[in-house]
Design a protein around this nucleic acid. Structure first.
Lengths: 209, 209
DNA sequence: TAGATTGTTAATCGATTAACAATC
DNA sequence: TAGATTGTTAATCGATTAACAATC
C-alpha cells in the first residue's frame, strides 16, 4: 500500500520531469533533482524505489524513462471518458481547462439542471439535463465524473455517478462526499486552500512583530 | 511553530463546525466530532490544544465558540484586499466564486495583458492592463494577489506582486513559485489533483484483479 | 579500474494514538 | 457527589533522513 505522502509527491515529480524533458535534459541524479524540487535526495530515491529501480548506479536517472514510468504509475498512459455536472462558473472553467490542456480526461458529457443552460454548447459538447446523467454514464462507459454543483446537490450527484458505475470522482463542492471505496475520490476544496492562505498570512504577520 | 499537518486540518474543522452551527447544534464532544469528521478524538483534542483550551471538562466544546476561535486562528476575522491577474477561464471563475461566496477576499482589481479583455467589467470591477498592476497594488494597499496566468508568466507576475508588497499569493499556475518567506504562498495545482485521481483509479482497478 | 550514484538498511524524527489524571 | 469529557503525558507508529554497500 502506497502511503498518501508519496502519492501527493508523484504529480510533482512528473511536473519537474516534464519540464526537464522540454529543456532537453537527458539524465539527472537524485541530488540534482533534490536541488530542483526541494525534497531530499534520499527521499527521492526512497520514493522511486517503492515502485521499481528506475536508476542506474554511477549514472543517475534517465529523464525520458523516469517521466514515462511515472506517467504509467499515475495511470496517465490512457484516456478517461469524463462527464461534468454543474456548468456554472467553475464548471465552465474546468471544462475549458480540460479541453485546452488535453489532460487525458476527455469531457464528452455536460450536465446541469438549469433550463437556461441546457441545450447550450461548450467546445462542441451539448449541455444535457441532469436527469439524463445516469443513462448517459452507463451507455457511454464513463470513467470519471466531475462535480461542480453546489454544496446542497453534490452528494446526490455523487450517488448518481456511483450508481451509474464511474470509477472516479473529481469533486469541487465544499463538502466531504461519501462514496464506496471502490470509487476513487479526489476533492479540490478551494475554500480550504484560501483559508490556509489566510492562516499563513496571519502567522507571517505575527512573526514580524 | 504549527505543523503543516495541523494547518491543513483547520479549514476542515471550520467547515464541519459551520455546518453544525447552521444545524443549530450547541455543543459537541471530541468523540462526536470524530464520528463526523473522521479524525480520532485524540487528534482533535491535540489539535485544538496546540492553540488554546477551548473545551470544558465533562461538557465538551461549544460549537459557536469553537467556530469563532478557529476563524480567528485562520485569520478569517478580517477582510483581505485582493487583486486577480489573468482573467481567462479560471480567472473569471475564481472572480465570480469570490464574489458570490463572500469569502473575505475582496477582489478590487482585475488585470490581464489581452487587449480584448482590458476595459471589460466583471462584477463592477474593470479589467486593467497588467502594466498598471504594481502601482495599483501599492496605491490600494492590496493584501493578496491571485495568479491565474499561464505557466510561462506566473513567476513574473509573482515578482511584481511581491515587489509591490502583497502579503500573500494564491497561485493557480502549474508551477512552484519562488517568493520570499515573508510572503505567504498557497497553490492550487489542479493538474496534480487530477493526476492523484488517476493514480487512485488505477490502484483501485488493480486491487480488483 | 576508479568514481559516481543508486538501492537499501538502519537511525532519527515527528506525528498520531492511547491512557489517564484533572476538573467541570 | 458521580459521570462525563477534556487536557496532557507517555507510548506507538510511520515517514524522513543518514549512511553505506552494491554496482554501473
Amino acid at each position: 500500500m502506497i502511503s498518501n505522502a508519496i502519492i501527493r509527491r508523484l504529480p510533482r515529480y512528473r511536473r519537474y520531469l516534464g519540464q526537464l524533458q522540454r529543456q532537453g535534459v537527458q539524465k539527472i541524479s537524485s541530488n540534482e533533482l533534490s536541488a530542483l524540487i526541494g525534497f531530499t535526495a534520499s527521499q527521492i530515491r526512497q520514493d522511486f524505489n517503492t515502485f521499481d529501480n528506475f536508476g542506474q548506479q554511477g549514472y543517475g536517472y534517465s529523464v525520458d524513462y523516469l517521466y514515462s514510468e511515472i506517467n504509467k504509475i499515475l495511470g496517465l498512459d490512457r484516456e478517461y471518458k469524463t462527464v461534468l455536472v454543474g456548468v456554472g462558473n467553475m464548471g465552465q472553467a474546468i471544462t475549458n481547462y480540460n479541453y485546452y490542456y488535453k489532460v487525458g480526461f476527455n469531457i464528452i458529457g455536460l450536465f446541469d439542471s438549469n433550463p437556461k443552460l441546457i441545450g447550450n454548447t461548450i467546445n462542441d459538447v451539448v449541455i444535457k439535463d441532469v436527469s439524463e446523467l445516469e443513462d448517459f454514464v452507463k451507455e457511454n462507459g464513463i470513467d470519471v465524473g466531475i462535480i461542480c454543483v453546489g454544496r446542497n446537490n453534490a452528494q446526490e450527484v455523487a450517488d448518481m455517478l456511483v450508481n451509474a458505475g464511474v470509477s472516479g470522482i473529481w469533486n469541487f463542492a465544499p463538502i466531504d462526499l461519501e462514496v464506496p471505496d471502490t470509487v476513487a475520490l479526489e476533492s479540490v476544496h478551494l475554500s480550504d486552500s484560501l483559508h490556509t492562505l489566510a492562516f499563513k498570512i496571519k502567522t507571517n504577520e505575527e512573526s514580524k512583530k
